[in-house]
């Protein structure tokens, strides 16, 4: 049960060559797990999230496989994936504010979408209304056009629509980033509530802001420049991270639970490499304080303790 991702590699095809945005990602999610996916902007979080559900050009499948509840997802087949989208795997996209058709009333759009998926709207309506209550939206939003809603309302509306068919996996991409601090907390809590009420089984919560994950994520996965760096329970990532990048990231946060801004992340000297032509080996090498010869090869992602995975040559020996 849950999600298994094995060696997933996704590039962007561009005129100047392949942008190697996701390289050999391997990880898994238990059923019911909320995993935070964090890392600097541009490290490939959205790429990973999107590739699981909507692998559209210029994104290009290079390799790897994805299993959801034991069944392989045909992620590279745009047509075949339709069967899984929405029902088994769903998304609250990064662009949630613009995700609703501007010239359809929200209720009508939802109805047309469900009809197209051969779901009876009337039968779902009571549940839809219950979930509107859950995210504190009045029922008459269904009679409004998206433009009549505030940004936060639109986002919660998208959250309700995406999870209407109780997907096994929900991908929530930067759902808090555009909101003020108070609404961030509220939306994060609503997401947990959704999981607790089985509106989705497990979720990947993508953010460049780790602090929001402290309250809601069971586990956290850290990415750096298209590579997965570390994955462990939230406690472990915060209190005893092992990857040098995670350590720097966590120590650059003011205090647990306090919001940090993106700027502090750049407190780590140097910049991430360009993914168009990344250096071989560990992509963190240029900025890593403890890098050594071995780091010219790509470090394996190994389980050093139960449920704690690290991709670093310094840690590989400790497994």
């Amino acid at each position: 049960m849950g999600l298994q991702v094995e060696n997933l590699t996704i590039y962007y095809q561009t005129l100047s060559g392949d942008v190697r945005a996701l390289e050999n990602a391997t990880f898994s999610l238990e059923g019911g797990e909320i995993m935070g996916l964090a890392g600097e902007s541009g490290c490939g979080k959205t790429t990973l999230g999107h590739s699981l559900i909507f692998l559209a050009p210029p994104m290009k499948y290079v390799g790897g496989r994805v299993l959801l509840d034991g069944e392989e997802l045909p992620i590279q087949d745009m047509e075949k994936m339709n069967e899984f989208r929405f029902r088994d795997i769903s998304i609250i996209p990064q662009y949630a504010m613009n995700a609703l058709n501007p010239i359809r009333k929200i209720g009508r759009m939802t109805e047309e979408l469900l009809q197209a998926k051969k779901v009876d709207f009337k039968a779902v309506l009571p549940e839809l209304k219950r979930r509107l209550d859950l995210v504190k939206l009045p029922h008459d939003v269904l009679d409004l056009y998206p433009i009549e809603l505030s940004g936060g309302m639109k986002q919660r509306m998208v959250m309700v629509v995406s999870t209407l068919l109780d997907p096994s996996l929900l991908i929530a991409d930067e759902i808090t980033s555009a909101l003020d601090v108070a609404s961030q907390k509220a939306v994060a809590e609503m997401l947990v509530e959704f999981r607790d009420q089985d509106c989705c089984k497990s979720a990947i919560v993508i953010t460049h802001d780790i602090s929001i994950l402290y309250q809601i994520a069971d586990s956290i996965m850290i990415m750096y420049a298209g590579q997965v760096a570390e994955k462990a329970s939230t406690r472990t990532i915060i209190h005893s991270p092992r990857h040098p990048y995670t350590k720097l990231l966590i120590s650059s946060l003011p205090e647990i639970g306090v919001k940090y801004s993106e700027r502090q992340l750049t407190g780590i000297p140097g910049k991430p490499p360009l993914l168009l032509d990344p250096p071989p080996g560990c992509r963190f090498r240029d900025r890593c304080p403890i890098a050594f010869d071995k780091c010219l090869e790509v470090p394996p992602f190994v389980e050093i303790e139960k449920g704690h995975f690290v991709a670093c040559w310094k840690e590989a020996g400790n497994a």
Partner: peptide
Amino acid sequence: EADYSHFLGALGAP
């Protein structure tokens, strides 16, 4: 290419 089209696509709308 608009966001709402991508969202529909991601939800597997025909």
